[in-house]
Structures are given as C-alpha cells and as structure tokens.
Nucleic acid binder design. Structure first.
Lengths: 208, 208
DNA sequence: TCCTTTGTACTGACCAGTCAGTTCAAATAG
DNA sequence: CTATTTGAACTGACTGGTCAGTACAAAGGA
C-alpha cells in the first residue's frame, strides 16, 4: 500500500524511482507515439522499459495517469525551450528562433509530436483538462511573440494574434510531422528554411 | 460466408446496402471522431447506426476496413470540393476559395477532421498506405494552387510549394479543430477572415 | 430465388488493474 | 561490528471483464 502520492517533490533519497520513471517515460513515449495511447498495452510499455507491470502501477497508478504525466513532461520541456527562444529582443528574430526551436524539438521527439497531434483535439478525452492547459501554455508563448511583432508594426493589419498563434502552432506541428513521416530524406535546414521563408512572408521583412 | 469483397464498384442493384453503408458511415464517423478508432467498439457503431452487428461484417468485413472506407469516403468528399474551388482562374482567388472550402468542410464534419488529425501521422498504423494516398491527393490539389500562384509571381522567392502545401493543409486542419474544440463561439466568417488575411500575407497582395 | 438484414449466442484473445510476496539498502539495536 | 527491522521499490501470476470476429437460423425484400 501507501503509494508515495506524487504530490510535488516526492524525490526520495534513493533516486531509484526517478530513474524508473524516466525509463517508463522513454518507453511509453516510443510506443504511444507510434500506435496511439489506446493502441498500446501496459504490458508492452513495461516490457519496453525492462520493468515489471506492477512497477507502472506503483509509480503512476494507472495507464491514463502515465500518459498524462507524459504529456505534461513533454510540454514542459517544449515550453521551456520556446520561452527561452522567444526572449530575444528583436521580435522578428524571436519569431524565427521560436520556429527553429519548435522544429528542433519535434525532430528530436517525433513520438511526442505524434502523441500531441493525435490527442490534442479529441473532444471528450481522458486528458481534456490537462491538454487545455498545455495548449494555452504554448499558445501564450506564441501569442507573446506575435504581439510584440504587432506592436512593432510588422504584422499585417487584421491578423488576430490568437488565431495566428493557433495557426502557427498547427503549421509547425504538421510540417514537422510531415517531414518525419513522409519526407524523412529532407534535412532539418531545408525544412527550417522553408518554414522561415513562409513565416517571413506573413510576419516580418525584418532580417535581410 | 461470402462477404461481397468490396473490390471496386461493389455498388449493387438494390441500393439497400448503400443506405446501410451510409448509416454506418454516419454513426462510425460520429463515434470514431470523438473517441478515436481504437476507442470505439463495433457493437457501439452498430447500435448507433440502428443496425445488427452482423451487418457491419456483411458490408465491410472488419472494423479496420470500415474505418478505411470512412477515410476514403471523407477524403473523396473533401478533395472533390477542394478541386472544384481550386479551379477558379485567378490564382489568388482560387487559393482563397480553397481555404474557404476546406474550413467549411471541416466545420461541417468536425469528426472527420478529428479522425484525420489523429491518424494521419501515425507511423506503422493499419491505414498507412491508404492515408498516404489520401494525403498525396490533398497535397496535390494545394500544390496546384500554389504552383499557379508561383507562376504568376505571387509567391515569395524560396518558398517550396511542397512544404508550403503541407504547411497550408496543417494550418487549415488545426485552425478548424482549434476553432471547433477551443473557441466554438467564434463565427465561421471570423475564422475564415483571420486565416485568409494570414495567407494573403504569404501568398498574394492580389485581390484588394 | 437470391441478396440483405436481424438477433442471439458463442469463442478466444487480449488487457487493465490487483495483490501477495520478494528484494535490498538504510536505519536501529545490541 | 553484527543482527534485526523497516519500508520503499519492485515483481509477475492471476482475475474479471471487454471486445473483435464467428455462426446460424429465421425473416424481409426485390
């Protein structure tokens, strides 16, 4: 009994659990990204992580909770990186850096991109609430960049930052996935350049 | 035995089956869009369609085949509409009409958009082959529009029509879903205008 | 007559979640 | 320093239920 309720810092002395959780994250991400959350069994995740099934339940309580933790973990990483990139002083440079960072992240964790795209817009879904928070988190960062761009007059009149942020996020996610799934032969630089040129058309004849 | 193998034109004399298949499509779309293909049972689909379970197997042979047929059916409808819209003579007008049509379609069949987004970029997946064909179908139409735009010099230098087509598709899909799921209060006109302004930034100071 | 649908009953695989028991490192005691 | 205890971490066989797919006799319809 007495599962250490993962309140906040649960990190105990041994650090054994943290390592186990990480192994489970990695394994789950790999499998869930490929076949969808519903298409993967807890037994498979445990096997992939080289751990007994019970360990999954000891650490996360349920399959749903594991996936939820996975979503949070991934978005935390992503938003951390985006936040950093978007902090550049020049708005156009910030936008480009953010785009670059997002593409890099999705290239690094394609399974996460797949998980995100397949669960984000599911209507009742077990992770509705979490996903809504995560979406707002990312959308806010993108909005921040776009708002600053608008302030400096580099966004065409009539573009609504909220819609543009959603569009930008969708574009990045889908371009990254399309690259990974349908055109893996392209180089990162190639894709990156295409998107940036595209973006620059809308939002900033700044740089060169 | 003897399930009529839905080779190609299966369309038989009676027309009774067509009606049944349509009922099953509608029901399946409703449920699968909401909870994902793996999250819905054949019993539920049959019940929702007001049909016996055996009928599903008589008409489609398997659950996977039903979903595959659903994907084909939906994309056929969509590409038919996009093709029509993209046939306008003026490239910029064609682009705007295509965008408009795509948004309208996703608004009309949000469940289809959800199904598409959640299955399109799954790597091994039961419908890999079909989805690839469907993706190429849509991408080709969008490319056609963008190519004509490039010919008439209204696409910034350096934009690759292939990447731009993927980006456009992703943008439309995600914006439509975001609207449906997170901002249902917005009007179609509002969303439509936002996207078109956005697109116009990249691809055409033509119209007005 | 032949195609299609129904309804019910069944099978066999698969799977989320449980639980009694094991391991082991660190704390406590003698 | 050795023996004992504690408890967090982990294990894996097991359970109860779910679900895709099958079977088939009877009925409805062109």
């Amino acid at each position: 009994m007495s599962v250490p309720r993962g309140g906040r810092t649960g990190a105990s002395r041994s650090g054994r659990t943290e390592a186990t959780k990480q192994k489970l994250f990695d394994a789950a991400l790999r499998l869930v990204g490929e076949r969808g959350a519903a298409g993967v069994t807890v037994d498979e995740i445990a096997a992939e992580a080289g751990v007994a099934k019970g360990t999954v339940y000891y650490n996360f309580g349920s399959k749903d909770a594991l996936v939820e933790a996975l979503l949070r973990h991934g978005v935390d990483l992503l938003s951390e990186r985006l936040r950093r990139a978007s902090a550049l002083t020049d708005p156009s440079a910030a936008l480009e850096a953010t785009v670059d960072e997002a593409l890099g992240f999705f290239a690094e964790y394609p399974s996460f991109a797949q998980l995100l795209v397949s669960e984000m817009w599911r209507t009742p879904g077990a992770w509705r609430e979490t996903l809504e928070l995560l979406r707002d988190d990312i959308a806010l960062i993108l909005r921040g960049v776009l708002d600053r761009l608008a302030e400096s007059g580099r966004l065409p009149a009539g573009v609504q930052p909220a819609t543009a942020a959603a569009a930008l996020f969708g574009t990045l996610l889908v371009v990254a996935l399309d690259w990974h799934v349908f055109h893996p032969e392209r180089t990162k630089e190639d894709v990156r350049e295409s998107v940036i040129v595209l973006i620059r058309g809308v939002a900033g004849q700044s740089g060169r």
